Every structure is written in C-alpha cells, then in structure tokens.
Simulated assay, not measured.
Amino acid sequence: MADQGNVIHMTIDEDSGIPIWLQLRNRLIYLITSGAFAPGDKLPTMRQLAVDLGINYNTVSRVYQDIERDGYIISQRGRGTFAHDGYLKQELAAGSAAESLADAFILQCRELGVPREDIAKLVEGRLRAAER
C-alpha cells in the first residue's frame, strides 16, 4: 500500500469544452485502472485535491461519490479514500472501459440537449479529425 503522500499529477483544461468534473473523473479512473493507484492506495482528500487543482470542493466531492458508486474507490470514515478494484466486477457486467466512456459521453450530450443524430455525427467527425 502506498503512503499517504500520493499526489495526482494532472491539470484541468478550462478551455477544452469538457466539463471539469468529467475531466477529473476520467483522470482518476485512468490512474486507478492503469495501476498508478493500486487497490488500497490512499487518494488525496477531497479538500486537498480541490486546492491542488484550484477547483470547487463540491466538484471533487461529486466525482468521488460518482466513482465510489462505480467501484473505483472506497471511502472509510476517519481514515480516508482508497483505490478499490470493485469496478472490475462492474466492468465485466457492463462491458469494457471504452463502453463506459461512451455511455458517459452520450449521457453528457443528452444532458446538453444534443439530439441522437447529432451525437453520432459528432463522433464520426471527431474520428475523421483524429485520423488526419
């Protein structure tokens, strides 16, 4: 298990068009699934992460709650928040990590009011742009 000094090396790109909470969520999930945080490793406190990234505490709290629900972390009152491998069971049930990202993207588009057809066009356009 890693020490309590784990630091999340990341930045928030306020000009990216991707909501801050989604950038943070995706980065934390990547750090956990890539092994940068092994199961049992302590994550920074919500307050510390908010200060380090210069973002609202409530944003960090929302992300921690979201990824805890998905099994990536586990919170223990009075001890802290730790990386967890519960997501593996959920991934097997729900499909691949890419499918989970696609689901999150679709949900965000729908919350923005983007019609289904436009979501598909957007993805196609971004795929073409990425191939250049």
Rank of each mutant, 00 (worst) to 15 (best):
A2H: 00
D3S: 14
Q4F: 11
G5L: 03
V7I: 15
I8K: 04
I8D: 08
M10S: 00
D13L: 07
D13P: 00
D15Q: 04
D15H: 09
S16P: 08
I20N: 01
Q23R: 03
R27M: 08
L28Q: 07
Y30Q: 06
Y30G: 05
I32M: 05
G35P: 02
A36T: 12
A36V: 15
P39F: 09
T45M: 02
A50D: 09
D52Q: 13
D52F: 07
N56A: 06
Y57I: 09
S61M: 15
Y64M: 07
D66G: 14
I67W: 06
D70Q: 11
D70A: 14
G71F: 10
Y72I: 14
I74G: 05
I74F: 10
S75M: 14
Q76N: 01
R77F: 08
R79Y: 13
R79I: 11
G80F: 03
T81D: 13
F82Q: 05
A83R: 01
A83T: 03
A83E: 09
H84W: 01
D85L: 01
Y87R: 05
L88W: 02
L88R: 09
L88P: 01
L88V: 07
K89A: 09
E91L: 02
L92S: 15
G95M: 06
S96L: 01
A97Q: 08
E99T: 15
L101V: 07
A104R: 12
A104Y: 01
A104S: 08
F105M: 10
L107R: 03
L112G: 14
V114Y: 02
P115Y: 04
R116N: 03
I119T: 04
I119W: 07
I119N: 12
V123K: 13
R128H: 03
R128C: 10
A129K: 05
A129W: 08
R132F: 12
